[in-house]
Amino acid sequence: MKMSKILKGRGLSDGIAEGEALITSQPFSISAAFTFPLIQFSKKLKVADRTHELYRKDVRDKVLIFPYPIGTTTLGFVLLETIHRGIGPRAIVCERGEPLMSSGAVAADIFFDIQFPIVDQISFENLKKIKNGTLVRVNGTTGSIEIIE
């Protein structure tokens, strides 16, 4: 029988999604990571940020988990484009979100009817216990994540 564990946080954008966890303890710059593969019209989403430990890792269909995003003002429409093309992660979980990142996911829901859940306010101490590849269900509407082992 499968066991599951629920962690409660805050939902920043609505929707439910499920995927394998990919965790990094390094803050994540969505603009630096995703802009180049978007320009290239890649079908995968290999992280293009040379300064990041996930460099060259494909994050497509993953539940991406990091401490907090590094925000630039293009972050929102870069994430929106990723969601719209369907080549990115399925959800994001972090300890500390911010409006620039949320705006991409919220805009995808409002303007394109595509839901991309983001949950924050779960301590990274707890998040980092999740093993890479573990199935995680993210519920942005209730603000919780379920770890399915």
Partner: peptide, 19 residues
């Protein structure tokens, strides 16, 4: 606004702007 570059990676945002 920074929604100024008509680059090929802002299609979705450009579509909203167009609407």
């Amino acid at each position: 606004t920074v929604l100024n570059f008509g680059l090929n990676f802002v299609n979705a945002a450009a579509k909203v702007l167009h609407e």
